[in-house]
Design a protein around this nucleic acid. Sequence first.
DNA 1: TGTCTTTTTCCGGCAATACCGGAAAATTGG
DNA 2: CCAATTTTCCGGTATTGCCGGAAAAAGACA
Lengths: 247, 247
Amino acid sequence: MKTIRKIGAVLRQFTATQPEHSTTDLSRAIGNSTSGTHDLVDGLAGIGLLSKVERGRYRLGPLVATLYRALDDSSALTEAARPVMQKLAVDHGETLHLTMHDQGRLLLVEAIEGERPLRVSRDVIGPHLALYQAPPGLLHLAGFSHARLEEWLDAHSRPGGPIASRSRFRSDLTALAEDGFAVGPIMGDDDIVCLAAQVRDHTGRPVAALSMAAPASRHDRQPRAFRNITIEAAERISARLGYKKPS
Amino acid sequence: MKTIRKIGAVLRQFTATQPEHSTTDLSRAIGNSTSGTHDLVDGLAGIGLLSKVERGRYRLGPLVATLYRALDDSSALTEAARPVMQKLAVDHGETLHLTMHDQGRLLLVEAIEGERPLRVSRDVIGPHLALYQAPPGLLHLAGFSHARLEEWLDAHSRPGGPIASRSRFRSDLTALAEDGFAVGPIMGDDDIVCLAAQVRDHTGRPVAALSMAAPASRHDRQPRAFRNITIEAAERISARLGYKKPS
DNA sequence: TGTCTTTTTCCGGCAATACCGGAAAATTGG
DNA sequence: CCAATTTTCCGGTATTGCCGGAAAAAGACA
């Protein structure tokens, strides 16, 4: 459906850093004429996916909030994860994220910032990161099928880029998949350690990643404790989703 | 754009109480053939607005969360309101809601549940309420233009219904508009008192309603205090949005 | 204030595609 | 295993999305 693909392209122009666009902006972005784009965005404003804030200027509209509320309220994942994350935050005081993925980037489902004087910002994890740039993203990649991973690599690797060897990258991911766990920096920043553990649904399918981010100085004093805490919390969320771990 | 109106109709079938639909469900809801509906939902799944969870079964998809994150992170309203609501919650311990409206129903932007042993649930305010059924909704209606209010009344009033007299209802709303404040039960439940105050943007336009909900027994001991607290908090949010109250 | 430039809005026509019928495939229930 | 129902697929056609071009609106500048 060509119209639907254009709708997707238009909607994805709206981001936290660029929340408002003119008709001319959007027509350039999607390669339509200004009058064709005008018809399209006017239609989207009519159903509430966009909102016309001034003459020729648009923002995301109330239907986005309505749909998100429906998504969030019905989500077994957020229902299962929220109490576990809240308890973990109280017990350990470190920054927590629950993520999925969308179009090769991290999708933040839930974030709780730590309470300690020295803490990692909740904003370190989000759609500004490509999947390979943080441990939760690597876990999502580890859950991809072979074909889907090839497609992702085709889109994201280049000579001289961060993924030097495809075969090495694939075998690293295989090891992560076996562990259901990844640990490392975020975007190469060695002052922060991020630990991510797989969350599975009732069928055993990986659906999300729970991660804890702490200053490296705190993590390095008790690395095994940090690892165990993260894995156990992810297992508790998975259990609440109906997953039974094989003996 | 006929296709876009169908997309709106399909997306609005997904609610917290009915988060998953089959192709046949959706074709009945929008009056398309099953094959036509299949093409449509397959297209929506392709861009991420829906997600195909099983053969022929769909839920809201990751693009909804992505767009909501963009909406929420860029929203001057949530940025202005959150710290004020958090302080109010700490200081007074009552349940708070910030609402807008969408298609004649309340749209929940932010909710903080009270901390006291006896408290009102955060779920009392949401899209299950038509605007006339709670004080924040009445404030939204009070902000409607004459034409838009007539349209809403055409859609929502009926002989023997809750709006017995249109002219009486309109003059009640005019009084609320002058006050920028409404107080009353939620859906006629007299054990709860809900107080709502208008939030304005930098141009003075009403954009949201802040409300506090408390057990009637607590409210009735100090009704003027509750009213003042609610109005002052809404004024603080409005000020943070750049609104300057006329002297 | 007037002029020029740019952007937005509007609308009818036509080329592109959304929608459908019908059949094959898949699933469920008995 | 069979019947019933639903889903999926795909080519053709009726419908509509998209556009050109012009009018309207807004901003910048002198």
